[in-house]
Design a protein around this nucleic acid. Structure first.
Lengths: 164, 164
DNA sequence: ACCTGAACACCGTTCAAGT
DNA sequence: ACCTGAACACCGTTCAAGT
C-alpha cells in the first residue's frame, strides 16, 4: 500500500467515524502522525482526497453488488452497502463525479449489475438506479417519517419493475 | 418583509448565483451592506439560515407542483423546479430536514401532490418521490453520460406507474 | 434596536527550511 | 524523499463598544 492509499484509507475511516466536517487536513494529518502540510507530499489537495474516496466507494459498491440479474437481491445489496457506508456513499454520490480522475472501468463495473438487472435497457437501468439512489439518500437524510416501513416501500417500488 | 426574511432572500440569491461555497457570513453581510457579525441580530446562525432556505425551497416547490393527480405534469413540474433552482434544491434535500424549525404544514403541502398522484398509497408515493428525486439529483450532479436522453429516461420511468 | 471592530479557534494551502 | 513551522487568506462566531 503506497502512501497515497494509506492517506485515502485513513480519510475514509475518519469520514465514516466522525462525519464530513471532521475530515480536515489537520485532523487527517494527526490521524497519520504528521502535520497537515506533509499530506501534500502524498496527495494533491483535499479535492484529490475526495476524488480518491469516490473511487474507493465505486469499487466497494461494485464489489458488493451481485451480477446475476436478480433485482431484489441487487436492491438489497445496494441499500445494504449504502447504509453500511453512509457518509462515504453520500460523499461519493452527492457531488459531481470526477470522471477524469477515475481509473478506467471503475464506473462501468459499478453500473454493470444494474444494467444487467434492467435487461440491458439503458432507460430502465437509469430509472432503477435513480429509484434506488433516491430511496437511499432520502433514508440517509432522515426524510421519511420515523415510523415509515421502508422495507415495504422498497418492495412496492421494485414491484413496478417485474421480470426486467 | 422583516429583516430575517431579507437575509434569507439575499442568502438564496447568493447561493443560486455563486454556489454553496460562496454562501459565507462575510459575503452575505456584504451583499446586505453590513458586517458579518451584524447578521446575528437577525438570524441565529448559519445553520439557521440553511434551515430557512429549506423552508423557502419547500414552499417554492409546493407552489410549483400541480395538484390534479396528472403524473406526467407533476413530474415535469418537479424536475423543472429543481433544474431552475439547482443549488437551492440540493441544499434543501441533501441534508436532514430540520422539522423542528419548519412551520406547520409546509412539509405536507409539498408532499400532497405526490401522494395525490400516487392515488393515496404511501408506498407508491414514496417510490415516486424517490424516483423523481433520484433522477433530479443524478442529473444535477452530472452523473448521467453527457449524451443521455433524459426526457426518454423520465418517460420510461413514469411508464412504470400507469394510472396511479 | 442595530451595527462595528477586534478577537478566537478554526480552515486549505504554500513555502522555505531542515533531515 | 519526507516532514516541519510559520505564514496567508480565509471561515463561523462572540463580545464589548458605539449610535
Amino acid at each position: 500500500m503506497n502512501r497515497r492509499a494509506e492517506v485515502l484509507a485513513a480519510a475514509e475511516a475518519l469520514l465514516e467515524a466522525e462525519g464530513a466536517e471532521a475530515l480536515t487536513m489537520r485532523r487527517l494529518g494527526a490521524a497519520l502522525g504528521m502535520q497537515a502540510p506533509s499530506l501534500y507530499k502524498h496527495v494533491r489537495s483535499k479535492d484529490d482526497i475526495e476524488a480518491g474516496l469516490q473511487e474507493r466507494a465505486l469499487r466497494g459498491l461494485a464489489e458488493a453488488l451481485p451480477g446475476g440479474g436478480d433485482l431484489p437481491a441487487l436492491a438489497q445489496a445496494y441499500r445494504g452497502w449504502a447504509l453500511a457506508h453512509p457518509r462515504l456513499y453520500e460523499l461519493a454520490t452527492g457531488r459531481p463525479l470526477r470522471r477524469d480522475r477515475l481509473a478506467e472501468g471503475v464506473e462501468a463495473a459499478a453500473a454493470a449489475p444494474i444494467v444487467g438487472a434492467a435487461g440491458g435497457d439503458e432507460h430502465t437501468a437509469r430509472a432503477l438506479w435513480a429509484l434506488a439512489h433516491g430511496l437511499v439518500t432520502l433514508e440517509l437524510a432522515g426524510r421519511f417519517p420515523p415510523d415509515a416501513d421502508l422495507d415495504a416501500t422498497w418492495r412496492a417500488a421494485l414491484a413496478r419493475f417485474p421480470l426486467a
